[in-house]
């Protein structure tokens, strides 16, 4: 299994109840995993724990056989090689599109080439010199995706990637998103509260309730 999560527990400071409660699951390599759940179910928190933006209380997480968290070891977010697309994209407003995309690429030599590559992947080659505020919502989302993919992360996380888009655009973008991710061949986990969006692009669906798995379903092997 590509990602293994064992007995993960987490609660926010000053809060008595567990947001993530004994979460235990494994994900296959190359799959797109959709996490469904109502607000407060813990789905975004689970994503933040995988990214390293929150520190779990107990449990263990492995990414590609490497421990990224257990009671002895904690890998910082910048060392996990995980990409993330934020709900409101978090594009740096003081940087152009190409600067935003190039931000996470460490190799200076290949930076321009890689920026061009991902811009082509998201079909935004003509927008390299623009600033984020000069783009529409759908274009910003593609740039956010390009920025996350540029450093070639081993895992891509997406937090409510469609919530800022209107309904028609959601249908168009989710098709494109699936095709881009599959083309990039990267394991992806995304959270949403919209079942339709979730079912249309995921290979595997998990529904969360009170920080626990309510049910899970795979397109290839149907499970409960």
């Amino acid at each position: 299994m590509f990602i293994k999560i064992k007995n993960l527990n987490f609660k926010y400071p000053g809060n008595d109840s567990w947001v993530i409660n004994d979460f235990d699951y494994s994900f296959r390599k190359g799959d797109i995993i959709g996490i469904l759940g109502a607000s407060g179910s813990g789905k975004s928190t689970l994503l933040r724990l995988m990214a390293g933006l929150e520190v779990p209380h107990t449990g263990e997480m492995l990414l590609n056989e490497q421990v990224i968290f257990n009671k002895k070891r904690i890998i910082k977010p910048e060392k996990r090689n995980i990409g993330m697309v934020f709900q409101d994209y978090a594009l740096f407003p003081h940087m152009t599109v190409s600067k935003n995309i190039g931000y996470g690429i460490t190799s200076r030599k290949d930076k321009n080439k890689r920026v061009e590559e991902v811009l082509k992947l998201v079909e935004m080659e003509d927008y390299a010199k623009r600033y984020p505020h000069e783009l529409s919502g759908g274009q910003q989302q593609r740039i956010a995706l390009a920025r996350a993919l540029a450093p070639e992360p081993s895992l891509l996380l997406m937090d409510e990637p469609f919530s800022s888009l209107d309904h028609d655009l959601q249908i168009k973008i989710r098709e494109e998103l699936r095709s881009i991710i599959k083309k990039a061949g990267i394991t992806s986990v995304f959270v949403t509260h919209n079942r339709e969006n979730c079912e249309s692009i995921s290979d595997e669906i998990i529904e969360l309730e009170n920080g626990k798995i309510k049910y899970s379903q795979s397109k290839t092997t149907s499970l409960n």
């Binding site: 990214a51 933006l53 910082k76 910048e78 990409g83 993330m84 934020f86 978090a90 996470g104």
Partner: peptide, 25 residues
């Protein structure tokens, strides 16, 4: 915090994030 978090996930530590992202913003 989202810009800082985005920068961390793109491989920058908190000090370089501070100078490259937080300060200009």
């Amino acid at each position: 915090n989202k810009f800082t978090e985005a920068s961390r996930l793109l491989g920058e530590n908190s000090l370089s994030t501070f100078f490259k992202v937080d300060l200009p913003m």
